[in-house]
């Protein structure tokens, strides 16, 4: 990937303490006020505990499906730079431990948000908490299942690399369609539609993965 990111001079010092409507809690170290979810105390600069934040809030991003990957990357790399172990080598054991906890949370949030499928799954659960208790774990969508079965059968029967490539291309096209459609349904807060598309996306990813396996097997035979 291209490095589109430049260190944001000056901003890294402030971004831990910008308080945009976040509840203020006392800093564990100096008892000064800290916006919940801030990486650092603005008063004493001590690293803060990660707290219970959703993955979007962790990067100060709105909980929406549309997300520019360059923006996410920038927030992520900023955080990781500020939490780098080298910066804590001379700090207290407590600060070293907190910075590691923060780092774990930041990584988890990034891994979830950068992948369109994981992001969709996460956002459905985030928005649907209490609305759709089963989340997207059930499939009773016969149309989707029939499609998945037919495509997997076609792959199992595929004899030439061209056949496999054609199926993989179809999976790729449909994946792109799903991601675009997810953006629409999340914008209108259509959670049922989001669930359907997320499930379809899972099956398409699986198909694409199986296409790769199939191709590898064919390559070996030749």
């Amino acid at each position: 990937m291209e490095q589109t990111l430049k260190p944001l001079a000056g901003q890294s010092e402030q971004s831990g303490s910008d308080e945009e409507g976040r509840p203020v809690v006392p800093c564990w170290s100096c008892q000064g006020p800290v916006g919940e979810g801030s990486l650092f105390c603005s008063t004493c600069k001590a690293v803060q505990p990660p707290g219970q934040l959703d993955h979007f809030a962790r990067f100060g991003l709105p909980a929406e499906y549309d997300l520019e990957s360059a923006v996410l990357d920038r927030h992520y790399f900023d955080c990781q730079r500020m939490l780098h172990p080298d910066r804590f080598a001379m700090r207290t054991p407590k600060e070293r431990a907190l910075s590691q906890q923060q780092s774990v949370c930041v990584n988890e949030a990034y891994e979830t948000l950068k992948d369109p499928l994981k992001r969709a799954d996460y956002l459905v659960h985030l928005r649907g908490a209490g609305v759709l208790p089963e989340g997207c774990t059930l499939v009773n969508d016969q149309e989707l299942l029939t499609e998945s079965m037919e495509l997997r059968e076609a792959l199992a029967d595929a004899e030439s690399l061209e056949d496999v490539d054609a199926l993989d291309q179809r999976a790729t096209d449909d994946i792109r369609y799903c991601i675009d459609a997810l953006s629409d349904v999340f914008r209108t807060d259509d959670l049922e539609g989001a669930c359907r598309l997320t499930t379809r996306l899972k099956y398409l990813r699986k198909l694409s993965e199986e296409c790769r396996h199939h191709r590898a097997k064919m390559d070996k035979r030749e």
Binding site: C136, V139, L145, S148, M149, K202, L207, E209
Partner: peptide
Amino acid sequence: VGAPACGDV
């Protein structure tokens, strides 16, 4: 039937 978590059908 299907299990979407693992993409089984």
